[in-house]
Design a protein around this nucleic acid. Structure first.
Lengths: 408, 408
DNA sequence: CTAATTTGTTGCTTGCCATTACAAACCCCC
DNA sequence: GGGGGTTTGTAATGGCAAGCAACAAATTAG
């Protein structure tokens, strides 16, 4: 649910029909073209194991739905009739990603290749404002982005909204709580101005992790993506799919115990990671009173600045946070055995000072299996991962089932 | 792979063919009959959403392959022509499960319904004996079990061997190490007497977890199964499938840090769970010198006996182990958000004394999500889970792809 | 004993892919 | 410049699996 539904069949899904077969082969053709640049029909046929006539028929349908476009005939210099180059369309179907941050609103439109084509961002102090007001503004921003995209020939087929909070698993469309915004049980449909463009909310950490996976040079199939916003949240990507857990609470790294008898946590337990590596804890430890007044105040940027300037308490605080984080991540590695760990979100901007101590702790704790220090890295996307992921979510869904697109 | 391959399609798997469609629908029919007792063809058609002619054709093939049998016509008292009852065959295809324990060898044959029909067990002190000798004996035991099964009309279609050790993920058939047996890099094919009956090795904890899932009254789809043998191993069942991790090391609960600066562990780290809840640690804490001399000596039984008699140091040791285990499991719950936790293997026999402290620790640590104490329970299968799982593994594979069976 | 009802099978249609055959478009070479 | 070779894309035909419609078979209701 929610994430890209890779065609995972279970007996409950009902019988297999010829349409399913067709759908799968459409995906196969589309994936081949997306992965390996421009290809001819014959090329695709050779690669995926279907015959040329079958591929021809599938390509016709994909072109009709606007997923593929036919370019010039690529001579290529080889003997024989040149093939007509097929490419994933840069026009037509697209996805809109929106994000509500504590201090900004962002919109992004990605084309079917996943490339962001339109960006819009406004600074806003959203904490404490009414959901209706914030949603109206982000909706307007999205409408602007859609208009700009339309000028590029892009048609938005789906909308996803990244929120810094918990999104209900079962009744979609509901933001259960977003502490940083002061939201509680907000149903998007109740506040969205235009009922035709209501987006699907999704936790921003999850979207950041998916963006990391979708945009990596060499994607790692199973990894843990850690990011700190309100709390410390980890998103688990297992076999290329977001893993939400039985009730949608997987990845609660912030309340893993790192000191059984340590500092009491707001959650009621003691020694949770959040008490050592959470934003508030680090700021306190660094001797920086938490300002959080205007939208310009960015505590993470402040920490980075102080650390860069060699401020000793800040460096100590980050080192301590890194060790605590490493300890918690060691547990994750022991349990999940991921191929990689990624520090994202705010952590990515502090990676320079966090990575050494996290790595050191992991080296000590992860012993009974092969573990390379490089398996831990910081996110390349940083804080723009979530919107990008939100925009690409729709695109990925289309790639996973092109029959979602209206037939030409 | 190794586990039951539920039909999970990825683009890499190649194009979808009509045979795939057929295969899926065969599985669907078989699953419907297996799940809901004897059914008529029309019943099956109504339930799974295929037409009666299609089901008829599928059923014919399943009968031909020996997966289904046709019983008497069930009048049922309803109006209309009575249907002919279909049931999963109690004869024909079957799976052989073998187990090498520290002190015993076991064989088990399960029919296609998953029911164990033949059990064989001999006591043997296997620690330190040569792999060749042990494997020859377990092979002979398996042959006896197969002969007994043949007398019941059962034909063994696959063989799985449960071993207390690490089984290689990539080149199947290799036991990388089994510390309790003193094995290192043992390739089964090199020592097995009959090349036609070489079994596939699998870690016994994984098989125990799968058995738990396959034999539960109301199976939980995502859970963590903890068992202590050599070390403390957890097996993760996610969405009904065994999750091995990127390199096959998932579930190493034994080396999760529970006391960052605690007792040094053989692995090189400090404060690993194994130092608090491992067999050796509990025995030491209980003041029981580790005997481990004859095959009759069963340290787990010893602990249970002392605890049952109210031996204070033993009770204290188990309480301490339970708290440590609870702490480590809290991390697992925070990360994985499973639907359940199961104490299996040796822990199941000590559950009476472990459960209270594990539950107490979980209640304190798991705070930010709904968590019911009943989600933690002890295994009903106990120590015979692994063999049963081994026998059922083959059966499950057949149920997941009946075309493995020779056509009639 | 007849009508009603449900089951299982048979004949025909539809949809999808494989196979075969063929026209089209290019290179090579004389 | 033109023929041979080669590769591409499409058209025609066949096979296979499921849907649909019709029917024979087996039972209950009356």
């Amino acid at each position: 649910m929610g994430a890209v539904e890779r065609a995972k069949w279970r007996p409950e899904d009902g019988p297999a029909s010829q349409q399913d077969m067709r759908r799968r082969n459409l995906v196969l053709v589309l994936a081949a073209v997306a992965a390996q640049g421009p290809l001819s029909r014959a090329d695709v046929a050779g690669r995926i194991g279907l015959t040329r006539p079958a591929v021809s028929s599938l390509v016709d349908e994909l072109i009709g739905r606007g997923a593929l476009t036919e370019a010039e005939t690529t001579s290529g210099g080889r003997v024989g009739r040149p093939g007509r180059a097929l490419a994933v369309s840069r026009q037509g179907p697209a996805g809109l990603g929106l994000e509500i941050g504590v201090a900004h609103l962002t919109a992004c439109v990605a084309d079917l290749r996943g490339e962001p084509r339109v960006w819009r961002r406004v600074e806003r102090a959203n904490a404490g404002r009414s959901p209706g007001q914030v949603l109206a503004e982000v909706s307007a921003l999205g409408a602007e982005a859609e208009a700009e995209a339309a000028a590029l020939g892009l048609r938005v087929e789906g909308r996803v909204l990244a929120v810094p909070g918990v999104v209900a698993n079962a009744p979609r469309g509901l933001v259960e709580r977003a502490p940083n915004l002061g939201w509680h049980a907000v149903r998007l449909a109740d506040h969205w101005p235009d009922p035709d463009t209501v987006p699907e909310p999704e936790n921003e950490a999850n979207l950041g992790a998916l963006a990391e996976y979708w945009n990596a040079e060499q994607p790692v199939e199973t990894f843990v993506h850690v990011s700190a916003e309100a709390g410390i949240g980890a998103a688990l990507v297992i076999d290329g799919q977001l893993f939400r857990g039985a009730r949608g609470f997987a990845g609660e790294l912030g309340h893993i115990p790192v000191q059984p008898e340590g500092a009491p946590c707001a959650c009621g337990a003691r020694g949770c990671l959040e008490q050592y590596a959470g934003e508030a804890a680090v700021l306190r430890e660094a001797g920086l009173a938490q300002p959080l007044s205007g939208p310009a105040d960015d505590p993470v940027a402040l920490l980075a600045e102080r650390a860069g300037a060699g401020h000793a308490p800040t460096l100590r605080a980050l080192d301590r946070a890194g060790h605590a984080l490493g300890l918690a991540l060691a547990s994750a590695v022991e349990l999940i055995d991921p191929d990689g760990l990624v520090l994202g979100g705010a952590y990515a901007e502090l990676a320079e000072w966090l990575l050494p101590s996290v790595r050191a702790e992991l080296a000590v704790r992860v012993t009974v299996r092969p573990w390379a220090a490089e398996a831990l890295r910081s996110s390349a996307l940083g804080r723009r991962g979530p919107v990008l992921g939100a925009a690409q979510m729709t695109v990925r869904r289309i790639m996973a089932d092109p029959t979602r697109l209206p037939a030409g």
